[in-house]
Design a protein around this nucleic acid. Structure first.
Ligand SMILES: [Mg+2]
Length: 420
DNA sequence: GAATAGATAAACACTC
DNA sequence: AGAGTGTTTATCTATT
């Protein structure tokens, strides 16, 4: 009994920790098991303009059809799946039980699983526990009520992160807005019923947030309206951090560096992101393990990037000065403030995850031209074995920090309750 | 209460 | 012309 509890607890912590440290990817088998996370009825989708063809774009190996074929070739989905499913299971059976444990212990909604029905939603509390009062479904209330809630309650991600996830999940790492809409709708059915303003918000974010860039039209998709959007590698670490913080606030316990060495940060390859499922595509998973660590420009003028508040708070508001996200062109204080709020801010925060260095050189779609970052973008391809070892290590490590995690969770919850 | 992040709405220009 | 896209500004809420 004790052991069981321990395992369960560790699994919870590990998931948090893993996300905090790295990958948001889901093995294909799990993905298939869960099916479309959305639970959005087909007819509902047809109500949404432009949704009919979205799925194919995202799911079929080479999503963005208009992208150069090379990108398709560079999307070895199958291999990644093998990697995630096979090797890992063999070499890290302890993670395997974790995985299974998660699936069993936390109402996996099955083929109709909603975002909120996914295990991780319960880990951090309910779907949107960090967001609105609407998310009152307790982890004990499963079934329809739960699904209903998932449709009603907002995903606990900011638009920036939703966009980021969408883009990162695409094989080419770039998507037109329409497909971003599609991805969001597909993974977060909440928006299918939400007022249409969210699309405006998405565009607003793409435009204002420095983390997202348009792919040069001549290089990317050129037919049709609009252009492709991608994540600026420069700001990617910040988005990753924001994702970690936003979705796993408890993970901030690990944000204070040396306590948990990077070794403890190599995650298992499967992860379920709250309500979303991610295919184990080695080329497109939300792989937080490649923090592209790099840097963000130190130039305040270029610092219009996202100032992931979450990050910042975690790292104790150190460099608020660097935050002067003044966009080129003078803007008044208010505006600069606004602009800043939409973009991540470079802090010295990514250092925690940086050890392995960026991958993006190899990952960036050939069609996308970036101003080459000043910082060297060495390609660091950590060996899988290495990762697995580290993951195992982290598991052990986590066993020791479990109590603190639970403690912090309690306090967070109680604080929220108090406020309400 | 100030600062900040994020959401939302809206106006507008541009492209197809 | 109309729809979709992208940019910008303004306002509001929540959090720290
Ligand atoms: Mg942008």
């Amino acid at each position: 009994m004790q052991v069981h509890r321990f395992k369960r607890t560790v699994s919870l912590v590990l998931v948090n920790f893993s996300v905090a440290n790295s990958i948001f990817s889901l093995s294909a088998d799990l993905f298939e098991l869960m099916g479309p996370i959305t639970g959005m009825s087909p007819d509902k989708k047809t109500e949404i303009p432009g949704m009919q063809d979205e799925r194919t774009g995202l799911r079929g190996g080479c999503g963005v059809g208009t992208l150069p074929e090379a990108e398709c070739a560079s999307s070895p989905l199958a291999t990644s799946v093998d990697r995630a499913g096979g090797t890992e299971d063999e070499e890290l059976t302890n993670l395997n039980w974790l995985h299974e444990n998660l699936l069993q212990n936390f109402t996996l909604g099955g083929p109709e699983a909603q975002p909120s029905g996914s295990p991780l939603f319960d880990i951090e509390g309910d779907y949107g526990s960090s967001q609105g009062p609407s998310s009152s479904s307790s982890s004990s209330s499963h079934g329809r009520g739960r699904e209903r809630d998932s449709l009603k309650s907002k995903p606990p991600f900011s638009f920036s992160l939703l966009i980021y996830m969408a883009i990162e999940q695409s094989p080419s790492k770039s998507l037109p807005v329409k497909e971003i809409y599609g991805w969001i709708l597909e993974h977060f059915p909440y928006f299918s019923n939400a007022p249409t303003g969210w699309k405006n918000s998405v565009r607003h974010n793409l435009s204002l947030n420095k983390c997202f860039r348009k792919v040069d039209r001549s290089l990317g998709k050129s037919n049709g309206k609009g252009s492709l959007w991608c994540v600026d590698p420069e700001y990617r670490p910040n988005l990753i951090q924001a994702l970690k913080k936003q979705h796993f606030p408890a993970a901030s316990a690990f944000c204070t560096p040396p306590a948990s060495p990077p070794s403890a940060s190599s995650p298992p390859r499967h992860l379920i992101l709250q309500g979303c499922s991610f295919k184990g595509n080695s080329d497109s998973p939300l792989d937080l393990s490649r923090p592209d660590s790099v840097l963000v420009s130190s130039d305040p003028k270029q610092d219009h990037n996202y100032s992931s508040a979450a990050l910042q708070r975690c790292s104790s508001r150190s460099s608020s000065s660097s935050f002067s996200s003044m966009d080129e062109g003078g803007c008044d204080r208010r505006q600069s403030c606004r602009a800043g709020s939409e973009g991540f801010h470079s802090d010295e925060d990514s250092d925690l995850w940086d050890e392995r260095g960026p991958h993006q050189t190899s990952r960036r779609p050939p069609a996308i031209k970036w101003p080459i970052s000043k910082k060297a973008r060495r390609e660091v391809k950590p060996e899988l074995d290495e990762e697995l070892k580290e993951a195992a290590g982290s598991l052990l490590h986590l066993a020791g920090i479990r109590s603190s995690m639970e403690g912090s969770k309690h306090t967070v919850k109680s604080t929220k309750l108090n406020r309400k």
